[in-house]
Design a protein around this nucleic acid. Structure first.
Lengths: 277, 277
DNA sequence: TATACTAATGACTGATTGGTCATTTGTCAA
DNA sequence: TTGACAAATGACCAATCAGTCATTAGTATA
């Protein structure tokens, strides 16, 4: 495990317990068994660490959900699968999820708030795509309202999953929420969040990872992975981003390779967006 | 305005902008135009101030909602009125609502977390009472699930109200959420939060304000109020709490007097509970 | 072994914090 | 005008913080 990862894992644990502000760099380095100076060899500042954590786990969550929504053929169970994926991802990264719920829109930098807002919009788009696919024209009036309902459901029930040590039946929960969402989608008539209102609210934010940033991330990932298939796939896709030469089928296949590895799902999602597949 | 109130208002504004940790006592006192020493004449510590703010505004919110639910005769529009009351209360105390949403279950003292949990349970009970009153046996299987849905709705839509400077139509919002809640209450069948699960989760917490604490609060309130009717009502009710002598009708009337004043609604709610009216 | 290099350390700095307390200021009745 | 008391002040303290840097430890090459 690289030093960066070690620090991130130690920090994550402490942040989940105590929050960002209440956790000192000293504590993190002690918990990781390294010196304070070593921390600043891996991260320029505490803020950079927080930034990195948010990027890492938000992308993980988003790519988890996105993959399920994209790869699910029969729309019948899609809602159920969506909720399953979301809650499983929360459970898998429960430390980060705790931070995300607790510190959401706290007193962070402008930069961080904007970043979180961007990820939030990504999630909105995934949910919207899913709803449109299932219900189509049927929900043309209420689709934006439904996004907020779905996010409301996830938020409240996440509390249970994260902050109580009770064994929960995620299957029943997902089934229950799928039922509720379907009810709202089929019978809800009053519209509160019109398309206009939705866009007014989200106007100033645009999602964007520059190609340069992404290339850098790919390079870093190449050094991290052990599997040769993954390494090769990443290298080829990096080349493709610099100078397209491969056929679409090959590119899709390479991205699938990455999607099969939990460690590469996130970067797969980004490459996918960059190459427009 | 008493010094205590001045400090609380100044602190509230800064807390809403920056959060608890990021706001120093120095900043608060500068903003209030007093010295640092003067702060500690009114509050034993920064924590005591935070405690006071939470008590003050949570009670305000809860008594606002409770009054609407209790006093609404026709159950037809009750859901709508409930959401209206909740969002109006949020809008009225938007500074505090922001803090409440932002710092919810952050890294506060054990004491504070428990306190917030207690208020949360109070809200649960009000919602549950309302739902039972409207739907009765019809929702016997899903009543606890419905609480979480209602709270989920309020949470997500509160974000819009609090963090975007868009003029919002609370009437339409409340109507929309009333419709959605009714849909779920009437047609939802899958139960996730069973009665047993609900009680397991909330077991260790019990709401309690001791009579002594309440008497002290009443005394303080007597000194604060200007109106003679309010002062008299408070004094009589205080006597009643120490040694019951008035008829139930008089007690009810006195509480109504308090309910008519925004400044006394909260303490009215507590006295009501203490006297079992 | 000697040299050159990087990785890692932790004492240190300057800034900021919550909270204290000797001192000053303001306000009464005598 | 005086003296007694309460209200208010802000310099001060110890603790803690993020971040730095001179120094040391470890390692690979010659």
């Amino acid at each position: 495990m690289s030093k960066k990862q070690l620090i991130m894992e130690s920090a994550l644990e402490l942040f989940a317990q105590q929050g960002f502000d209440a956790t000192s760099v000293q504590q993190i380095t002690e918990h990781a068994g390294i010196s304070k100076g070593a921390f600043y060899l891996s991260f320029k500042s505490k803020d950079e660490l927080i930034n990195g954590l948010i990027d890492h786990f938000m992308l993980s969550l988003i790519s988890d959900i996105d993959q399920v929504v994209k790869n699910h053929e029969t729309d019948a169970n899609l809602l159920y699968e969506f909720y399953q994926a979301a809650f499983h991802s929360f459970q898998k990264h429960s430390d980060f999820a705790k931070i995300f719920i607790k510190e959401q829109s706290k007193t962070l930098n402008e930069e961080l708030i904007s970043k979180i807002h961007q990820y939030d919009k990504l999630i909105d788009n995934i949910i919207l795509g899913m709803l449109d696919r299932i219900y189509g024209e049927e929900i043309s009036q209420t689709r934006y309202d439904l996004i907020y309902c779905v996010k409301g459901f996830i938020h409240t029930y996440s509390h249970l999953i994260l902050f109580f040590d009770v064994p929960l039946d995620l299957h029943t929960l997902s089934r229950s929420l799928a039922e509720k969402t379907a009810l709202l989608a089929k019978h809800s008539e009053t519209t509160f969040i019109t398309e206009e209102l939705y866009h007014t609210i989200n106007e100033p934010f645009h999602v964007h990872v520059t190609k340069e940033q992404l290339l850098e991330m790919v390079e870093q990932k190449i050094e991290e992975v052990d599997d040769s298939t993954l390494e090769e796939s990443l290298t080829l896709l990096k080349q493709q981003m610099i100078e397209p030469s491969l056929s679409p089928a090959i590119v899709k296949g390479l991205i699938l390779n990455l999607n099969n590895s939990p460690a590469c799902k996130q970067i797969a999602f980004l490459i996918q967006g960059c190459l427009g597949v």
